[in-house]
Structures are given as structure tokens and as C-alpha cells.
């Protein structure tokens, strides 16, 4: 089973304001994009499990022209809370890389 790191050429995460983190998945080729554009493995449950977010808040939008999907999720705690470890949310993508897809 391929990992996200193997089907994407680039994955990045960043704050989208203080209450959201947005993750961009840029796929490596057309086949991978076609296969995973709407894949349920990249659904809200994955983000709930990895990031402790409310699955009901997860938003997913594919951008066909850029062969990417953008998935945004509410931060479980606002940016800068007392146990903050990643102020920009810029390292949150890392735990997605080894996730296996069907």
C-alpha cells in the first residue's frame, strides 16, 4: 500500500488564521491524483485521528488545475495556546507522510 509521501510530490501545512490549519497535497502524477482526489482514506476521520480535530469541521476541496487537494481542519486549540508546539502549523504535515492509502 503506497504512503502519502509516495503519491505526492509535496505536502505542506500552514495556519489559515488562528483557528484553522490547512494542508495542501500536491500529487506526483495524473494517475495518483485521479485515484486519490476523492479517496475516503483522506477523509475527516484521518484528521480526527491524527490531529484530534472535530471531523465534522474538516473541509476538503480538490484543485484540478494544480493536481492537488486542500484539506483544512479546525485546530483543537487556537494558535498560541499554553501547550502550543507549532505556532505556524508548519510541521503538522509530517505525520501525514507515512499514512498508507489503498
Amino acid at each position: 500500500m503506497p504512503k502519502i509521501a509516495e503519491v505526492c510530490r509535496h505536502v505542506r501545512s500552514k495556519n489559515a488564521g488562528p483557528f484553522w490549519i490547512t494542508v495542501d497535497f500536491f500529487f506526483a502524477d495524473d494517475d495518483s491524483f485521479a485515484r486519490y482526489r476523492d479517496a475516503p482514506e483522506l477523509g475527516p476521520d484521518l484528521f480526527a485521528r491524527l490531529f484530534g480535530t472535530d471531523p465534522g469541521g474538516v473541509k476538503r476541496v480538490p484543485v484540478d488545475a494544480l493536481r492537488m487537494i486542500k484539506i483544512s481542519y479546525p485546530r483543537p486549540h487556537p494558535q498560541g495556546w499554553r501547550h502550543e508546539r507549532d505556532m505556524h502549523g508548519g510541521q503538522q504535515f509530517a505525520r501525514l507522510l507515512s499514512v498508507e492509502l489503498a
Binding site: N15, D24, V61, V63
Partner: peptide, 13 residues
């Protein structure tokens, strides 16, 4: 140019 619309934005469009 188009990729910048993704930046720090929870909706790309």
C-alpha cells in the same frame, strides 16, 4: 500565481 491562492487560506477558491 494560481498556487498563491492556496496560501494560508482554508478554501482555495
Amino acid at each position: 500565481v494560481s498556487a498563491h491562492l492556496l496560501y494560508e487560506n482554508s478554501d482555495p477558491f
